[in-house]
Design a binder for these strands. Structure first.
Lengths: 159, 159
DNA sequence: ATTTTGTTATTAGTATACTAACATAATGCA
DNA sequence: TGCATTATGTTAGTATACTAATAACAAAAT
């Protein structure tokens, strides 16, 4: 980034400001939503740099979850990865197209589609775990181990 | 959310796990990318609940920045709000359509479009600042003031 | 047993967010 | 001056991420 959006108002001289200015002072960089977006962008760029098989972070999450629980319906997978029904559909469709998810209809419930890993994706899981760990590590690299734990804890607290 | 994706592996009995299981242990909930996504979703839902004139968080950021700096080119606004050229174009187009941004071409540089607030958006800024503050407050409500500052600081550090 | 309620999945529409390619205009330097 | 580089803005394509509407089916309630 050439022109850093992270400019600060640290040096602002409150004494010399008119009351109206002080009242309307609002620093974008200090708002949690803005900061969350920037941090997410940074993580996404690190993730993309590692580029595991062209997977996106959400596709990665879906695969990890299925690997963890074995198999489940599409909507349930969405809930377990915090994606709504429309989002998880797209994610599952693309993963199926890549041959990383197998779909079959549930004989016990005609509404449901059972989703499971394929042989191809089963063989990838270990590598994906390692890649995932490296990505998290690189994202959190500016922080001490204690700070990393603090950050995760605080983010969970506001979720 | 009914089936909370935030289930923990805290109670996992390491003693009883086979070595292979331990090696491949990877907890999605502990990965910074996943946690960032969930936190961003929570913030987005709080933002949307406050619903200031149908503005989205990104549109809001763009307006705040223009209000702060007066006027600038489209690409520069993108850089100052951390949006790439394609994203800022869409955001500016929609804000213009809503009558919240005025566009005129720069006489000194025929490539540039000068972007500024309209009378309508100038009159909204104060309300937007207040709404923004309430949204940040509600998002960070689970945290103490010290924790809020810590969270912002750590997020900036990894950005 | 029928109705109501809830669940699953699909579809259409909108809004970020990115890449890549392109045209145009401005700037730097040889 | 002239050419290469850089900057600005547009467009096309893909991938989340949401709302809202719909259809099919299952489970619960009366």
């Amino acid at each position: 980034m050439k022109e850093d959006a992270g400019k600060s108002k640290k040096g602002l001289n409150v004494e010399n400001m008119k009351l109206r200015d002080i009242e309307s002072d609002y620093v974008l960089e200090e708002q949690i939503g803005y900061v969350l977006r920037i941090a997410s962008q940074k993580h996404a760029s690190i993730f993309q740099k590692h580029s595991i098989d062209g997977l996106t972070p959400t596709q990665f999450s879906a695969l990890m979850r299925i690997a963890e629980i074995g198999e489940c319906s599409q909507n349930r997978l969405g809930r377990l990865t915090s994606m709504d029904v429309a989002t998880i559909k797209g994610v599952v469709d693309r993963l199926k197209k890549k041959g990383l998810l197998g779909l079959e209809s549930d004989p016990n419930d005609k509404r449901r589609t059972i989703i499971k890993l394929t042989e191809a994706s089963k063989n990838m899981i270990k590598n994906l775990h390692e890649a995932g760990r490296r990505i998290s590590e690189e994202t959190l690299e500016p922080l001490s181990p204690a700070e990393q734990a603090t950050l995760l804890g605080l983010l969970k607290k506001i979720s």
